[in-house]
Design a protein around this nucleic acid. Structure first.
Lengths: 351, 351
DNA sequence: CTGAAAGCGCTTACAG
DNA sequence: CTGAAAGCGCTTACAG
């Protein structure tokens, strides 16, 4: 039962009667190997059940074959984030093609976070993707000092060096928010509120600014904003605060699905019908949002595609290509049943 | 702007006027180094900004410093799984102590899955944790053939070699389900239904069997079971099917929160009040469940602890210790507002 | 097309 | 307490 020593490239070479170099070449194809010896080598490898040692290859090539992803969020929040796992799945898709993997790190302090990046830079990963970017994120400087290739994922175009020159995969969250406000206004709503994400997150801030701008365009008062933190708890509390007002909103635009769903639930429990009494929208297109009753109007973020693009961009940078910013916009509004005319609207306002 | 060559242990040794071996020892502490040279070494390292290369160390020690986790689920489903990210967070906690990392792989075909395990075994990970275990899971044989240390996470004690002798971290989901049924029965429910998870998953099957057994114990009919697949979509459909019956249940026990939440939403949309008209319970204790209105009675699975224990167990196995099964039971019912007496019950049945 | 050898950057017996 | 050297298992110029 004691594990037999694993075969090495040397064993295969000996077995096939060639040099180690030739075995290596037969697999990499970096230089031609005669069909005959190639076959001998494959047979020997098969017989010895040999697979190249990843560790040895990593040292020889100075490439680890992994990229790093560090998440500095409470696991509770991570759990409920529809974006995250779709994003990872997109990353995997292209990593697999390149025979690479994803090193995931969950940290809870910024001290631990710094340490993790240092370890990654010490050869545990060939590069990293920076998620949940904050305004003037300290990681920008950190990765550059560490010489660690990185791409940042942002919700706005880094026109003025917002991402410190690091290659950035960005989308623009604004149009979807504008469209959502437009739909609500069109349905006849005037008192529209926004439950925002934290302002220090770019995607929190952008969605909020887009809300304000869209309301202004519609000639409406865009000041009814409550800041949440993307958790269900904060969604419920913010909603309670809004509904408790003397002049409660007739529509609420939430910065993510999670907050929208707990908000929806609270509204229901207060006897409000959605969408008849209250219209709402989310952001993220989580699986749950599509199967609620009524289903939640939300925004699909193209998370899988962004994962793919982010990794592709990172690999290009690692390969030494000139870093560039790339627009990855698959953001689109998914209209579902949670928006209707406000209460008291005549059944049909024919044009 | 061209990246300066990174310092190596040789540079540090030269700088400090010692041998490479001594530098290594100064850091590992595996053998004593005089305080004076030790300081010289640290100073040199500091000045040259040296950190040991993980790749080189990995080859020299035959240890990769990472464990693998492969998830064979639709990203949509993963996204909404409260267990998963808490579990990962628990893993990280102990991995960090050991200066190790987590290689995460998301696969969508069993073909891809096999390939990933082979890669992991080829030196990309020192061991793996097997999640979402199925009955007679083919991975049991695979990891053993590959000589890849593994621990499996199960929802029942592997008394009869269910996990092929692999060290197993198990909990028992039954008591919580029994308690839930008990609470519902106690409240006066007799028509209690179960929306189950797929039967080929151990945790799906166990919860279902526990439901049947508990109903039997209560002298109730436990045949009202609809199989879902843990997604919100299936939760909604199963609930519709139940509520459409001539004799709909007055209480529904769901195999996870996600199905319970979409079920709750559907019930609401049909004008049923929860818990006045329908009592429900979930399983997983997701963040959302606590902030719904009413909050969802559910089961906390101790996912963080299980992650910690799983990794601890795996590291012990990697270190060559005798593999054993370990009970990791932090499963407990979290009573919240979603269970009450069935409709038509006199206000208070004083004992 | 193939071989011999150096090199990737550490760790760890082996001597002293 | 410290040094010189071998070894981890590959890849890749360099010769032929």
């Amino acid at each position: 039962m004691t594990a037999p020593r694993k075969a090495t490239i040397g064993d295969v070479a000996r077995h096939a009667g060639v040099s180690k170099g030739t075995v290596s070449l037969a697999y990499s194809g970096k230089r031609p190997v005669s069909e005959e010896t190639r076959q001998r080598i494959f047979d020997a490898a098969e017989e010895l059940q040999w697979t190249a040692s990843h560790r040895a290859r990593a040292l020889a090539t100075s490439r680890t074959g992994a990229i790093g992803l560090v998440v500095a969020r409470d696991p509770e929040v991570l759990a409920t984030d529809a974006f995250f796992s779709k994003f990872i799945s997109g990353c995997e898709r292209v990593l697999a093609e390149h025979d690479m993997g994803l090193m995931l790190h969950a940290v809870t302090s910024s001290e631990a976070e710094r340490l993790v990046y240092e370890r990654l830079a010490a050869g545990r990963a060939d590069g990293v993707i920076l998620l949940d970017v904050q305004v003037e994120d300290p990681r920008f400087e950190l990765v550059q000092r560490l010489g660690l290739p990185a791409v940042v994922l942002s919700a706005e175009e880094p026109t003025g060096g917002e991402t410190a020159g690091l290659p950035t995969v960005y989308s623009d969250d604004s149009p979807a928010v504008t469209e959502l406000v437009g739909r609500m206004a069109q349905a006849g709503h005037t008192r529209i509120a926004h439950v925002a994400g934290p302002d220090h997150y770019i995607h929190g801030r952008i969605r909020r600014e887009a809300f304000a701008a869209a309301m202004r365009e519609q000639g409406l008062d865009g000041s009814l904003v409550v800041e949440g933190d993307f958790t269900a708890a904060s969604g419920r509390d913010a909603t309670a605060q809004l509904l408790d007002r003397a002049d409660p909103p007739t529509a609420i635009l939430y910065a993510n699905d999670m907050m929208a769903i707990s908000g929806l639930s609270l509204a229901h429990s207060r006897g409000l019908r959605v969408p008849e009494d209250l219209s709402i929208s989310g952001y993220d297109d989580s699986e749950l949002s599509a199967h609620l009753s009524p289903a939640l109007t939300t925004v699909s973020t193209g998370a899988v595609q962004r994962g793919q693009i982010a990794v592709t961009t990172l690999l290009a940078e690692i390969a030494g290509e000139q870093p560039r910013h790339v627009l990855a916009d698959h953001t689109t509004v998914v209209p579902r049943g949670s928006i209707a005319a406000p209460p008291g609207t005549p059944t049909r306002t024919a044009p």
